[in-house]
Nucleic acid binder design. Structure first.
Lengths: 188, 188
DNA sequence: CGAGGCCTTGACCGCGGTCAATGCCCGTGG
DNA sequence: CCACGGGCATTGACCGCGGTCAAGGCCTCG
């Protein structure tokens, strides 16, 4: 399982073997059933995760208790409840597996120790933040400029695995529409 | 004008005097009338700006040509068309002054040269990215969980200067509603 | 002055949310 | 093995928020 993490880091950074080993030894493997809560609402997010297998989502509940999915992490991605992870304040967001999954987790402490000690790791962190920002920005644009049906069709062509791997319920939540309208949209 | 930038950096970092001077000397002051375009659509954003006086906004046009305001930078803030600045690809976003303004600008080259040379500056950049991410995340949450009237009222209590300093047109664009509904919402 | 932009108000209507009924699938236990 | 229950998906009826279009008034600036 750690091989995937190693390959992921190796292919995206200029870390040397020593550094790679130090970093990877900080990650702890975790095998989880589907629908496991990794970070609960109100809890401080103390880890960052890598998905070796399966997938997980990050969601929050709006004022009416409706579930809004901010992000779905599939294989080969690093993710966490970023805001809480950065600020170490209680998280409005919940992290939950959507399938039986194999994850690797690094603690807040170790993560930021490495940021201070290994410049190349700090650089990776910067890249992550940049990517996360750009992702959020595009998501906002999508939500603001496209209507329900267009958002679905865009996702279907750009990231079809979202449509195939997620249940309608979760997909609808990710697109910020209701199950019912997703169902209608799908059937033309 | 540079005094404000100096104080801004001094109060937010641990840069020593030498470093502060190097950094500040990289910024070029610019005095601009209102409604000046700093970065046009399709142009690569080659600078990051500090607002000493006045304000500027970042917006983009949706598929129908409607203007959507992503961010408004008032005094004492660093800002840019982040996505384009990071990737050095043509910007979908436009940067425009909303009032007669005094800005300081640092070029892409100098900015990232400093990131490599001065760790404390790299740290500031990280903080900026973190803050930008958290800002976007909250904006998404607000758009998804509140309706037009609630968004306006939230902004009115949390950042009243948005309501007082921006024209209805720009405020509506920032809230992602039309001028007409903003007008109706304001009059109860 | 006139022209153009901004704000307000009214009439209309469509997207998509809400509620409800029904059917389907699947895991669990008798 | 089947019966049952709960979650998910589908479909229909309804309706409200907020967008669109249009008209009229006001302010600013050349």
């Amino acid at each position: 399982m750690k091989e995937k993490l190693k390959y992921f880091l190796w292919s995206r950074t200029n870390l040397n073997d020593n550094q790679l080993e130090t970093i990877i030894s900080c990650f702890k493997p975790r095998s989880l059933k589907k629908n496991c809560i990794l970070v609960a609402e109100g809890e401080v997010c103390k880890a960052l995760f890598f998905v070796a297998k399966g997938c997980a989502r990050i969601y929050y509940a709006d004022s009416n208790g409706l579930v809004k999915t901010r992000f779905v992490a599939f294989e080969q991605t690093l993710f966490t409840a970023i805001s809480s992870f950065i600020t170490q304040k209680p998280s409005a967001e919940v992290v939950e597996t959507l399938e039986d999954s194999l994850l690797c987790a690094i603690s807040y402490k170790n993560f930021f120790r490495l940021v201070d000690e290994i410049p190349e790791w700090a650089k990776l962190y910067r890249k992550l933040l940049e990517a996360a920002y750009i992702y959020q920005n595009e998501k906002i644009q999508g939500m603001v400029t496209f209507r329900a049906k267009e958002r679905y069709e865009k996702l279907l062509t750009e990231k079809p695995y979202y449509v195939t791997r997620l249940s309608n319920k979760n997909l609808a939540s990710y697109l910020d529409i209701t199950q019912e309208t997703l169902s209608r949209v799908k059937s033309r």
